[in-house]
Every structure is written in C-alpha cells, then in structure tokens.
Nucleic acid binder design. Structure first.
Lengths: 149, 149
DNA sequence: TATTGTTATACTCTATAACTATA
DNA sequence: TATAGTTATAGAGTATAACAATA
C-alpha cells in the first residue's frame, strides 16, 4: 500500500505536525458534537464518572487522579450527588474516608455519552474505503501506544 | 502490510471506538504537556491568538468565531492586552468598531507554543519504525479529511 | 432605531487557608 | 500530631442585562 500512495509529509517533523493537528481537530469535533447529548455533564464531571466506572474511589483519590485540589473535588462530587449520578458510603475500616461509587443512573449516563461520541466517529469511519479503514485500524493501535507512553 | 498485521479491531464500530479514544488521548497528552510552556496562556486565550494570527479582527467577530458572548470576549482581550500580546486600533471607517491584531510578542508566543506541542509529537514519532511512520502519514491525511467534513 | 462594544452583576469551577472528625 | 474531608473565601471565565457611542 505504501508504494501506491503519495505522501504529503516527507519527514518526521512534518508528519508530527500533521498528525498532532489531525488528532486535536478530531478530538475537538467529537467534544463539540457530544456537548448537547442528553443529560450532558461538564467535562470535569464526566471525567470523574469515568474514573468511578473503573472502580469506587475516595474523594482524595479522585482529586489526585484528576489533579485538582480536594475542595474542588468536594464541589464536583456534590453536583454529581445532587443529580443522583453517584452515591457515598462511609468506610468502615477508616471512618475519616468516604467511598464514592456510580449509581445505576450514573453508569447509564456514562454509557449514553460514550455512545454519542462513538456515533460521530462510526458515521465517518463507515463512509471510508476498506483500505482507508485498514490504515486507521493500524494507526489507532500505534497512537494508543504512543499516548500511553 | 495489511496481510502481515493482526488487527484487534474487526468491525467499524470497534474501529471507531478505538480511533476516537486514541485521538482524544493523544490530544489530552499534548494539551497537558504544553500547559507549562514558557509564557503559557489559557486555552481560550491561545485560541484567540491563533484567530488573530490568521487576520486582524474585531471583538465581535472573535466572539462569534469562538462562540462566546461579547462581554466575555471583552474580558479575554483585556487580559491579552495587559500582557502585551495584542493591540487595538480604532476603525476609521466605522468608529464603533475596534480592530484587534497580534503584537510581535503575541506572534512569537503562538509560534513558541506550537513548537512545544510539535516537540512532544516529534519525539514520539521519531522512535517509531519507518513502517509505523508510513501508516501514521497515511492516517493523518485521512483524519484531517474526516475532521474537516 | 439598530449596532458595536463596554460596564454591572451573577453563576460556576478553580484554588488556598482554616476547621472538624477520625487515626 | 497527622490525615481525610468539608466549609469559608477569593480569583478566573462565563453569561445576561443595561448602557454609551456611533451608524
């Protein structure tokens, strides 16, 4: 396939720029398109819901993971609690701590937002040729590795 | 190349999800890494500087482009003006209007931030094999087209 | 009278400092 | 005395409403 395609990017620097811009534009479009999704939550709230989908956590852990101050996380969690998306349980081992977890509503909201974001990309990927889809399949593996470094 | 690579993503839905996550992760990493760049500006400020790099504009045009209310743009521009990154000139044609443009300092800050963002990607792309770079070169063309749709 | 831009005011998300309760 | 979390308060960024200058 490489021998059949003319590349506008000839060197590493040029490729890096093109690739960075392409990823950032795709990302911006997806964020923008899924802003008005049903029951939309703000980015920082969604981020916390995703962390809680992985596992229940304490407010302190969430503050560390999201790199915000603890009082900021207190506020974010208060908002999610008001909307019934998370629940709080006192830790029986260490009663200073609180265990936060998703409610069924929180879990389904995360799924719904994910589906909205996927839908944007699914529509566009479906229009591409099998060859282009093949290129993107290989690229996504490489990009995932790069992002995880 | 396609015949030599096993793909974890077998269908369009799966590919769309993987690709979306990869792009968003790359984008997040780049934004995060370039946050502490010299003379860093907030995302909304940077966005305005980039618009002004394209051409001088009025506050009203900038508000429309950035999809914020006019008073918000007034504040953003005040901050950039304080830092000497933009300059304001009264429009001689229509004296209600103000023409905003980049100062030399604003122009070089935009370049510096771009270089920081590129540097992150250059480092990582340079470590990849020629075959992987080839895949990403083709992918960036496809992704740019998808984002522009 | 309509339009460009600013000022006045309020809401949200962020932070640091001080406080409560547990350990 | 140290730690987990909250409350108190303040600093940005956003918005809507009201105003000034100009068309």
């Amino acid at each position: 396939m490489a021998t059949r395609t003319l590349l506008p990017s000839r060197d590493v620097a040029h490729l890096a720029t093109d690739l960075r811009l392409a990823c950032m534009r795709i990302s911006r479009r997806i964020r923008y398109e899924s802003t008005d999704a049903a029951g939309a939550v703000a980015p920082h709230q969604f981020s916390v819901l995703v962390r809680l989908e992985e596992a229940p956590r304490t407010p302190g852990e969430l503050a560390d993971i999201e790199r915000v101050a603890k009082p900021s996380m207190t506020r974010t969690l208060a908002g999610l609690l008001d909307r019934g998306l998370i629940q709080r349980v006192a830790d029986v081992q260490d009663r200073r701590q609180v265990i936060v977890s998703l409610t069924p509503q929180g879990r389904s909201l995360v799924s719904a937002i994910r589906r909205t974001r996927d839908a944007w990309m699914v529509t566009r990927v479906a229009r591409l040729s099998p060859q282009e889809q093949e290129v993107l399949a290989q690229a996504s593996v490489i990009l995932a590795r790069v992002a995880a470094e």
